[in-house]
């Protein structure tokens, strides 16, 4: 058998492959480096939206953090504490970043009802932090009903004088209401911003893709409503309207999307929608249940 020497084409193919891989890795690394920064600020609320975000699935929170954004600051998750933690917040302000605020902005006594850090001896209120980051952020997302409209933090008699992020900042704020906000609504909005730029918003600055229809429009119990068959107590299978359901005035895609692995939603648990994504929640949505 004739011995065949190393073929230069094969050889170059090998190196070509390697250089393509290297290019791809470099690209990937560059992409990672270029991921936009994210500050997720917890303000006057229950910190339930970050918990809801942890419930995300496809993409999950790890995909969000590894592939989509570079999370620089979040009270619930970050490793650093104290001044070192808050320094990460400050250092991010001079970069391009998305600001997510969950919770309302409590304004009473110059914001002292909600102090989020102490930096070089100085108390930093949530109000001040929202202001600092809100002025510089490329996009501001109000996540959850408290950040979007004041929500339960601003419930009568509103002891902390809490207001929405938009009312406080007086700039464009994208509202992603819900108590809590669905993780898909948050991650979907961020995906739209980083991959496609412009986001279609309604007159209340909510992404149309999630908030264009009322719960009532797509409720699986709608046929009961149309025929006038109503539930008389929780646990019943008919239309919840007469028990106080706020589906007709609440715009979200809950009936189709569903929650927590897409397994259920409040009406699926035989309870009325309490309008938790609505502007007037909770005061304007009460009583939550009536017989």
């Amino acid at each position: 058998m004739e011995t065949i020497g190393p073929c230069h084409v094969v050889k170059s193919k090998k190196t070509t492959a390697r250089s393509i891989v290297n290019l791809a890795i470099k690209e990937l690394q560059n992409n990672k480096k270029d991921k936009i920064n994210l500050i997720w600020l917890e303000a006057t609320g229950c910190s339930g939206n970050i918990i809801s975000l942890l419930n995300a699935e496809n993409p999950d929170v790890m995909y969000l953090l590894q592939e989509m954004v570079s999370l620089k600051y979040n009270n619930s998750l970050m490793a650093a504490e104290g001044e070192k933690a808050f320094k990460q917040f400050l250092d991010t302000l001079d970069t391009e970043f998305i600001l997510v605020v969950e919770g309302a902005v409590s304004t009473k006594d110059n914001g002292l009802y909600n102090i989020i850090a102490r930096y070089q001896g100085k108390a930093i209120t949530a109000m001040e932090a929202v202001n600092l980051a809100g002025e510089k952020a490329k996009y501001v997302l109000a996540v959850g009903t408290c950040a979007s409209y004041g929500g339960i933090s601003a419930a009568r008699p509103n002891p902390s004088n809490s207001i929405s992020v938009a009312e406080f900042l007086k700039r464009e704020v994208i509202r992603i209401p819900g108590c809590p906000s669905h993780p898909d609504w948050v991650i979907g909005t961020i995906a739209n911003l980083i991959a496609f730029g412009n986001l279609e918003l309604d007159s209340k600055n909510r992404p149309i893709m999630f908030y264009s229809i009322t719960i009532h429009d797509h409720c699986p119990r709608r046929s009961y409503f149309d025929k006038g068959i109503f539930a008389t107590k929780l646990g019943d299978l008919e239309c919840m309207f007469k028990l106080g359901c706020r589906g007709p005035i609440t715009r979200t895609d809950c009936p189709m999307r569903q929650w927590n692995g897409y397994v259920n939603w409040p009406i699926g648990a035989n309870t009325p929608c309490i309008g938790c994504a609505g502007e007037s929640f909770p005061d304007g949505m009460e009583p939550f249940v009536r017989y």
Binding site: L54, N55, D60, P180, W259, N260, V263, P266, A269, T271
Partner: peptide
């Protein structure tokens, strides 16, 4: 992360959603 998410999924299965579940009354 998957297992804590699944714990909330069980809760939602029985109570509609989590956090702020509806099914306990």
């Amino acid at each position: 992360l998957e297992y804590s998410r699944l714990a909330h999924e069980m809760l939602a299965e029985l109570g509609g959603k989590a956090p702020h579940t509806h099914g306990i009354f």
